[in-house]
C-alpha cells in the first residue's frame, strides 16, 4: 500500500493482490510445483501397481494360496510363506507392543527430565533411522548365534522387533503426549496413583494413536526382507513351521525374492501374484488402523 496518497479501499480481495503480481505468481507457481510432485508420485505408484496387477492377477487364486512352493512354476504357491509371514507378524507384535508401549510410558510418565532421558530419547530417535539390514546383522550375531535360536521364527520375530521397536516407541510417546495435561491433573487430584492414571486414563485415551502406530510399524515389518535374509531365513520352505524355536520358516517378501531370481517367466508371474497378496494384507492392516482410529476418536473428542 502506498502511504503518499489517501488510502483507496478496494472492495474485493482479488483486486487487492493485483498490487503484487510477483507474489501472486510465486504463490501459484509453488502450488503447481507441489501438485506436480504429488502427481509424479501418484503416477509412479499407479503404473507400478497396474503392471503388477496386470501381470500377476491371473495367477491369484485359491490354489496359489493353499499350495506349497514347487519347482514347477505352474504348481507353485505361497502357503508356507503366507503362514510364515502371519506367524512372524503375530510374534513380532507380541514382543514389540509391550516393550514399545512400556518404554513410551516410562519415558513420558515416569522419567523426570534428566540427562538420562535426553540420552534415551535421542538414541531411540536415531535407532528409528538405522537401516534394517543392520538390525539383521545384529540379530544374526545375537539371536541366531549367541542365543542359538538358529534361523527360527523366534529369531526372526526378535530381529523384526528390533527394527520396529523405535517406531512403536515414538508413535506411543506421541499418542501419550496428545492426551491433555488437564486429564492427568484431574486424575491425580482425585487421589489416583501414577499407575492408576496411566492405566485408567492415559492408555484408554491414547489407544487409537498407539494402535495406529503399532499397525503401521507392523505393516513395515511385514514387508521387510533384508534383515530376514541377514539372519539366514529360508527363501522358500515346503512345510509349515510347527515350532517357533527349531523350524525354518519363510515369509512372503523372501518368497517373492526367490521367485524373481528364477530365470523362468512363469516364476516372475508367481512373484507378481505374491506381491498382490502381500499388498492385500498390507491394505487390510492399514484399513484396520484407519477404522480403529475412527472408532475410538469418535468416542474421545477433547
Amino acid at each position: 500500500m502506498s502511504n503518499s496518497s489517501p488510502p483507496v479501499y478496494r472492495n474485493s480481495l482479488a483486486e487487492h493482490s493485483n498490487g503484487r503480481p510477483l507474489a501472486k505468481f510465486a504463490s501459484n507457481a509453488f502450488a503447481v510445483a507441489c501438485a506436480t510432485c504429488t502427481i509424479v508420485c501418484m503416477a509412479t505408484l499407479v503404473v507400478l501397481l497396474w503392471k503388477i496387477f496386470q501381470f500377476g492377477w491371473g495367477r491369484v487364486n485359491l490354489d496359489f494360496i493353499t499350495s506349497f512352493p514347487s519347482s514347477t512354476a505352474e504348481n507353485a504357491g505361497i502357503k508356507s510363506s503366507l503362514v510364515g509371514s502371519l506367524y512372524l507378524i503375530g510374534l513380532t507384535a507380541l514382543f514389540s507392543v509391550p516393550l514399545g508401549v512400556g518404554t513410551a510410558i516410562y519415558l513420558e510418565e515416569y522419567c523426570k527430565p534428566s540427562r538420562w532421558r535426553t540420552f534415551a530419547q535421542t538414541n531411540i530417535a536415531n535407532l528409528a533411522g538405522v537401516p534394517s539390514i543392520v538390525y539383521g546383522i545384529l540379530g544374526l550375531g545375537l539371536f541366531v548365534r549367541a542365543m542359538s535360536l538358529n534361523r527360527s521364527l523366534l529369531a526372526g520375530a526378535l530381529t523384526l522387533t528390533l527394527v520396529i521397536l523405535p517406531i512403536v516407541i515414538l508413535a506411543s510417546q506421541e499418542a501419550l503426549r496428545a492426551v491433555p495435561k488437564t486429564i492427568r491433573q484431574a486424575s491425580y487430584a482425585l487421589g489416583a496413583t501414577r499407575w492408576q492414571t496411566v492405566w485408567g486414563q492415559l492408555l484408554p485415551a491414547s489407544l487409537p494413536g498407539i494402535l495406529t502406530g503399532v499397525i503401521l510399524a507392523l505393516s513395515r515389518a511385514l514387508g521387510e526382507a533384508a534383515p530376514l535374509l541377514a539372519i539366514g531365513a529360508a527363501t522358500y520352505t515346503a512345510f509349515l513351521p510347527q515350532d517357533i524355536v527349531h523350524d525354518d520358516f519363510s515369509v512372503l517378501p523372501l518368497q517373492i525374492y526367490n521367485w524373481t531370481d528364477q530365470p523362468q517367466e512363469a516364476f516372475h508371474q508367481a512373484a507378481a501374484a505374491a506381491i498382490v497378496v502381500l499388498l492385500t494384507v498390507l491394505i487390510c492392516m492399514n484399513a484396520l488402523a484407519v477404522f480403529l482410529r475412527y472408532r475410538f476418536s469418535k468416542r474421545i473428542q477433547w
Partner: peptide, 29 residues
C-alpha cells in the same frame, strides 16, 4: 491427602468417559 482435599479446575476437565465413569473414577481408584 488428595482424596481429602478435592480440587476443581478453572477449565472443566471431564475424562473422555461416560458421566457415570467420571464420578466413579475417584471411588474406584
Amino acid at each position: 491427602l488428595r482424596k481429602r482435599v478435592g480440587m476443581v479446575f478453572q477449565k472443566s476437565n471431564p475424562f473422555p468417559k461416560s458421566i457415570y465413569d467420571n464420578i466413579a473414577y475417584g471411588p474406584r481408584v
